[in-house]
Design a protein around this nucleic acid. Sequence first.
DNA 1: ATGCCGTTTGTGAAACGA
Length: 256
Amino acid sequence: MRIATWNVNSVRIRAALVADFLERVQPDVLLLQEIKCEAHQFPGDAFAAAGYRAEVFGQKSYNGVAVLSREAVEVRARGLPGEAEGAAARYIEVGLRDVIIGNLYLPNGNSGGADGFQAKLDWMARLRVHAAALMATDRDFVLAGDYNVCPTDADYAKGALGADDALVRPESRAAFRALMWLGLTDAVRALHPAETLYTFWDYQAGAWQRDRGLRIDHALLSPRMAERLESVVIAKAERDRTQPSDHVPVMVTIGD
DNA sequence: ATGCCGTTTGTGAAACGA
């Protein structure tokens, strides 16, 4: 099973790019973040032509997540347990065959001052509680998406972020580690422990041309999924296309 | 220290992003 995740920064602007990726790469599942639209605005026809159906959890203007798949999936949840009614659309979870797939868009945490940063930590705490519940079911699962956390100093280019940025703050990293310590495996680091790898390059200040990137899009695997992990691909070439997202896809291949 | 760019809303300028 091949599962890809991609923060597309508006699915309507980039529907053709996403459809082209689907046709070339043909993952079983593509998890989208920051679709920036409501479900009725989602360009599903562009993806249906490539052979994909969509499950959407959207909202007006901001955030929004969706799951594209060749086979029908069962939607297990829209939103995380414990979220307030009307909270930002940042999590959708589906079941496909024997696997549970959680698609997440974690808050950035740099806006809104101390309260905004605390909201990021609160969201991470809810994600950890939910991940613990998934572990307790003994089901196989993947939690993938835009985590908005650089787990270590090896995960961002020097000068790309300040030391007090919410993506690298000790509290954000501690929350990420607390998630990992439940027994999850970072798919990229399992297979590429020491490579300099990024999944995001800012539009500004020539970040792409200067390779000032961040590794913030992650796929965390439950123990048996980690045993079945065969390969990971960071589709870096997508960043060089016309009018690209600032993120590129990350794809994991899980053997049978 | 700030803007650098890009998207949405709505048709201006501002919010938000990482």
